[in-house]
């Protein structure tokens, strides 16, 4: 078990050999895990105080001068700087890498004010912006390292709480823009991101015991969406379930629905937060309350299969 935010912190240390890499914080470096970088490279770490708007544009100014800025805060507070991200970063296509930690209801007891359930949706609407939501610390670390080579900005959501490590020996398959098939099946394809990937694997196991064979995909990149892979599993499985700790509006489920309806109409069940706010509770209690834990993925898979012609 490990938290994706630890993968982010580790990646910043890995990237530090590149002197162009700079780190920006808005008083949450201890939480987002940029603190490890700060401790070792204080001269390349910029404290912006509790000021997210200023942080985003300071990062933009650094990017315009040839640096590779990694800025982080809680996912929910990145939203305060949405217009800065839109007008100051995405529009001039400056390669600023924004990380929102503590995303989703899984963040837990801090309650609904801290549980961003719309970040993936809003950043996905911005041209030029790559949107990531990795499922474990291993993939977060590798994807974050890859970001440094991008010539466009990005938003990455990480999670506060620990989740199972999904990648052990398959690291070479992790690449921005490419979903990873964690398990191959024939009856239904479950496309998940973030903390819901391990829930989906649990669901697949439960489905197996019912004689149902499921494909499970870690769709760590929400944008650009791996359309080739979605097309492939839409054909091979004939029905799809998406799973995310995010509003069912506009996130991974929304992106997959948009693609399927325009290109390869396929029955789709979306597991996600049903357009409501959360409350204080433990991470596992939240997944239960939001009806997105593995039993709910199982039910959605059965509904999806029943919708096949």
């Amino acid at each position: 078990m490990a938290a994706t935010r630890d993968g982010y912190g580790q990646a910043l240390l890995d990237l530090a050999v590149n002197e162009k890499v700079v780190v920006l914080e808005a008083d949450l470096g201890k939480s987002t895990k940029s603190l490890h970088f700060r401790k070792q490279f204080p001269e390349r770490t910029i404290s912006c105080g509790i000021g997210e708007q200023n942080m985003l544009l300071t990062a933009a100014g650094l990017a315009s001068s040839g640096f590779i800025p990694f800025a982080s805060t809680f996912a929910i507070f990145t939203e305060r700087a949405f217009e800065q991200m839109r007008n100051g970063v995405a529009r001039p296509n400056l390669a600023v890498h924004l990380c929102g930690s503590h995303g989703g209801t899984h963040t837990g007891t801090d309650g609904s004010s801290a549980q961003s359930i719309e970040d993936l949706a809003i950043f996905r609407t911005l041209p030029n912006v790559v949107v990531l939501h990795p499922c474990d610390d291993v993939s977060t670390r590798l994807l974050t390292i890859q970001l440094a080579d991008l010539s466009q900005p990005s938003y990455t959501r990480t999670a506060r709480n620990k989740t199972p490590v999904m990648y052990d020996g398959r690291e070479s398959e992790i690449e921005i823009g490419k979903g990873v098939v964690l398990q191959e099946g024939t009856d239904v394809a479950i496309i998940a991101c973030g903390v819901m990937v391990s829930e989906s694997m649990k669901a697949a196991e439960q489905l197996t015991s019912q004689g149902i064979s499921a494909t499970v995909i870690d769709m760590h990149t929400i944008k650009p969406l791996d359309e080739e892979l979605i097309t492939k599993v839409a054909k091979s499985c004939g029905t799809i379930v998406t799973a995310e700790d995010h509003n069912i509006i506009g996130g991974l489920g929304g992106a997959v629905a948009e693609f399927l309806s325009s290109n390869i109409p396929t029955p789709l069940e979306r597991v996600g937060v049903k357009d409501r706010f959360g409350e204080s509770g433990q991470a596992d209690e939240m997944l239960e309350l939001m009806e997105i834990s593995s039993p709910h993925i199982v039910s959605a898979a059965i509904r999806a299969i029943n919708r096949k012609k």
Partner: peptide
Amino acid sequence: LSFGMGCAISG
């Protein structure tokens, strides 16, 4: 001004 700050730190 924020953007300028980034440019100033870069310098």
